[in-house]
């Protein structure tokens, strides 16, 4: 009995997100469709988790369940040791489609989640985060005046602006060019190290998953299951052209192309 109690307390302290035996179904055309099957994921404070998986395997759904936007019927989902029943102020989310509100200027979109703050403080935060994502000078633009990549960066600024302790990012760099993407990856790492934010990022870019993740969650489709959680040695994964990086890459590719003969992997491995 005593042991069990201690274990629970340890859970409370060390896991900021705890998902156990989570199943999720959607009803489509009156038929239940299993989207997530037996998901188990414990995330420590300050960790950077990346999630990769085929389109439609339930990655976005998993993030929305973690932040309380989508209900779950079966399993345990906890944030800070409490069952998730809805969104909380300290859990931010950057959506796959940027979802900036078209009728608000960029500065008001970024400040959308900043409630009950004095005007000046609010403006200062907005300014700081716009600068961080390289959108200084676009405060008074409307979302329709921004490019796809700029909109995504504005959405990231909105996600960061109210200093969440957990930030869930759903393919946040999807619309960015390779150069901006690498720049944003560095920026997000800097923010994570500075603010100790716990980050969970869905990405379809395997390089990105390796470069950013402390652990990589590899998911399979229909129903979405976790195939493996890969621990990443950061010393190796931060060297994009190193042999260690290539080895991680091959390991992940092997999940998706089971009889893998992806040639350019082999090049790296050698």
């Amino acid at each position: 009995m005593k042991e069990a109690k201690d274990e629970i307390r340890e859970n409370d302290n060390s896991y900021i997100i705890n998902v156990e035996h989570l199943n999720k179904q959607f009803i489509v055309d009156k038929q239940p469709m299993e989207v997530l099957h037996d998901i188990n994921l414990k995330i420590k404070k300050g960790e950077f988790i990346t999630i990769v998986g085929h389109s439609g395997c339930g990655k976005s759904t998993l993030l929305k369940i973690m932040c309380g936007l989508v209900d779950y019927e079966d399993g345990i989902v906890e944030r800070n040791g409490h069952a998730v029943v809805g969104p909380g102020p300290k859990c931010g989310m950057v959506f796959q489609d940027h979802r900036l509100l078209p009728w608000l200027k960029i500065k008001d979109n970024v400040g959308f989640g900043l409630k009950n703050l004095p005007k000046q403080e609010r403006e200062e935060k907005v300014r700081k985060h716009l600068e961080m994502v390289g959108l200084k000078g676009f405060e008074n633009s409307y979302p329709s005046q921004l490019s796809g990549g700029m909109s995504q960066r504005a959405a990231i600024a909105r996600g960061l602006a109210n200093n969440p302790t957990i930030l869930l990012l759903d393919e946040p760099f999807g619309a960015l060019d390779a150069l901006t993407r690498i720049q944003m990856q560095k920026e997000i790492l800097r923010i994570q190290e500075e603010e100790k934010t716990t980050m969970v990022m869905v990405t379809h870019d395997i390089d990105e998953a390796i470069y950013l993740g402390d652990r990589i969650v590899v998911m399979s489709a229909r129903p979405g299951e976790i195939k493996e959680i890969i621990e990443v040695d950061k010393a190796e994964s931060r060297k994009r052209s190193g042999a260690g990086f290539a080895a991680y890459k091959k390991r992940i590719y092997d999940y998706f192309f089971e009889d893998s003969d992806v040639e350019y992997d082999v090049e790296y491995v050698i």
Partner: peptide, 27 residues
């Protein structure tokens, strides 16, 4: 629905969701 989810995420009250999301969208 996506915009309503944004309001939900930031825990806007029903009234605030109306004035900040539904109404401007409907204007």
């Amino acid at each position: 629905k996506g915009y309503i989810e944004v309001a939900k995420l930031y825990k806007l009250s029903r009234w605030k969701t109306f004035t900040k999301v539904y109404l401007p969208h409907a204007v």
